Amino acid sequence: AQASVVANQLIPINTYLTLVMMRSEVVTPVGIPAEDIPRLVSMQVNRAVPLGTTLMPDMVKGYA
């Protein structure tokens, strides 16, 4: 199964992502692939992302 990117903490709206904020986990539904974690660093979330939430492409500015 493919691992997705999951929030490792509460990520406030407009926060620039860093490695410590994200982890990879096999979840349903599938979100942003874990292999894209390096690409996500320094990208901004466009909403608050609670701890344990799967990151979806529409949550990250400029990802989709």
Rank of each mutant, 00 (worst) to 15 (best):
A1Q: 06
Q2V: 11
A3Y: 10
A3T: 10
S4N: 01
S4Q: 02
S4R: 02
V5H: 01
V6Y: 02
V6L: 12
V6E: 02
Q9V: 15
Q9L: 10
Q9R: 08
Q9H: 10
Q9K: 08
L10S: 10
I11G: 01
I13Y: 10
T15D: 11
Y16Q: 10
Y16C: 04
Y16G: 14
Y16W: 10
Y16E: 14
T18Y: 04
T18W: 03
L19H: 14
M21A: 07
M21S: 09
M21V: 06
M22E: 00
R23V: 08
R23W: 05
S24Q: 09
E25A: 08
V26M: 12
V26A: 14
V27C: 03
V27R: 06
V27T: 13
T28P: 02
T28A: 07
T28V: 12
P29T: 11
V30W: 05
G31L: 01
G31M: 03
G31A: 05
G31S: 03
G31C: 03
I32F: 03
I32D: 00
I32K: 00
I32C: 03
I32H: 00
P33I: 06
P33Y: 06
A34V: 12
E35Y: 06
E35R: 04
D36H: 10
I37M: 15
I37C: 03
P38S: 07
P38H: 15
P38Q: 14
R39D: 03
R39S: 07
R39E: 04
L40Y: 02
L40K: 00
V41Y: 08
V41A: 06
V41F: 07
S42P: 02
S42C: 05
M43W: 06
M43I: 04
Q44P: 08
Q44S: 07
V45A: 06
N46M: 15
N46E: 13
N46L: 10
R47H: 11
R47G: 09
A48I: 14
V49C: 03
V49K: 00
P50M: 09
P50C: 04
L51P: 15
G52H: 07
T53G: 11
T54D: 01
T54P: 10
T54G: 03
L55S: 00
L55E: 01
L55H: 01
M56R: 09
M56I: 11
M56F: 11
P57W: 06
P57Q: 10
D58V: 12
M59E: 03
M59A: 08
M59I: 08
V60C: 02
K61H: 10
K61G: 09
K61T: 14
G62M: 10
G62H: 10
G62L: 12
G62T: 04
Y63E: 04
A64T: 10
A64S: 11
